[in-house]
């Protein structure tokens, strides 16, 4: 670790603590966000996520070394964590901390983008099915049933078999396109209830076109469950990416992702556990944090708890 990367790391920690403090302060003014922070874990979740996001964005600053270079494969391999190698080195003598930071970019990036694709698609399909009902609903929801029944690993394996190696963009797309089924069911249920509400009937009575009724009146009022499901989706996508990378069909090595790092370290798990430990820990922490944030959001966005 160079002085610069230590400094960057400290700044990242302080910054994420400050962000949470600032959010908390702002929250005092709104009943909804006070409810969010009433969850003791929600603040921690926010802090951890902010820290990892800062690390991902500032990877070139916090990482002392290139995540791909192998400084000395003979003498520096499987080096235990120390002041120079914060998280040790792996079997190829690469700095685990640097790979961790750059891996955060890849893993969180796929998580966020994949979830964005999944939630947008799921919301649209769910909204269309719930709004139009009848045969549109029947066809779309049978499709969703099939989608939920197919193992996603199998779909991705097929994609890999077809295109050999998936690039980052394609991998994100494939993951996103196979992760929207649960969201669409949730949104459909919400839309089925909303479409009977008087303000939706009023919009139809005024001649507002269906697309505008769906996107202007129905979906904005289903925002709460959509946001919660987005938070949970990021965790799911992240886990899927990790398992795909572990199986060697995810992010192409030597590019680091947290899933890749676990795969690389798997052979030395007894002699050099640090090579897998930190990446595994990060994945668990992100998923746990997202669940905590989703819980907080569920409470915060629940209109039944709003003061009248």
């Amino acid at each position: 670790m160079t002085f610069g990367s230590w400094l960057a790391l400290v700044v990242a920690i302080v910054l994420s603590a400050e962000v949470v403090r600032w959010l908390r302060h702002r929250a005092l003014r709104h009943e909804r966000w006070r409810r969010f922070f009433r969850h003791p874990t929600a603040a921690w979740g926010c802090g951890i996520l902010t820290f990892l996001i800062i690390v991902a964005i500032a990877a070139p600053l916090v990482a002392p070394l290139d995540p791909i270079v192998q400084p000395d494969p003979v003498r520096l391999k499987n080096h235990a964590p120390s002041l120079t190698f914060l998280m040790g080195t792996d079997v190829f003598s690469r700095d685990v901390w640097s790979r961790f930071a750059y891996g955060a970019r890849v893993s969180l990036g796929i998580g966020a983008l994949g979830a964005l694709i999944a939630v947008s698609l799921g919301s649209c399909v769910g909204a269309v099915a719930g709004y139009y009902r009848r045969w549109v609903d029947a066809i779309l929801m049978r499709g969703v049933d099939i989608g939920l029944a197919l193992p996603r690993i199998f779909i991705v394996l097929m994609a890999v078999a077809l295109w050999d190696r998936l690039s980052f963009a394609w991998l994100t797309l494939v993951i996103g396109l196979t992760s929207w089924f649960a969201t669409s069911r949730l949104v459909r249920a919400e839309v089925l209830a909303l479409r009977e509400r008087d303000f939706v009937v009023a919009a139809r009575a005024l001649g507002v076109p269906s697309s505008r009724v769906i996107f202007g009146h129905v979906l904005p009022n289903a925002a709460a469950p959509i946001i919660v499901s987005a938070a949970l989706s990021v965790g799911n996508v992240l886990l899927l990416e990790a398992s795909l990378s572990f199986l060697g069909i995810g992010v192409a090595p030597p590019r680091p992702s947290w899933g890749n790092m676990i795969a690389d370290g798997a052979v030395t798990i007894y002699t050099a556990p640090w090579t897998t430990l930190f990446a595994g820990l990060a994945i668990s922490l992100v998923v746990m944090s997202l669940n905590a944030v989703a819980d907080g959001l569920r409470d915060a966005l629940d209109p039944r708890q709003d003061p009248a």
Partner: peptide
Amino acid sequence: RALRRRMQIVFQDPYSSLNPR
């Protein structure tokens, strides 16, 4: 669509008849 301009409706429940957002 043209007819929608000529016939309108006022609802019973003023709490659910306006889009809260």
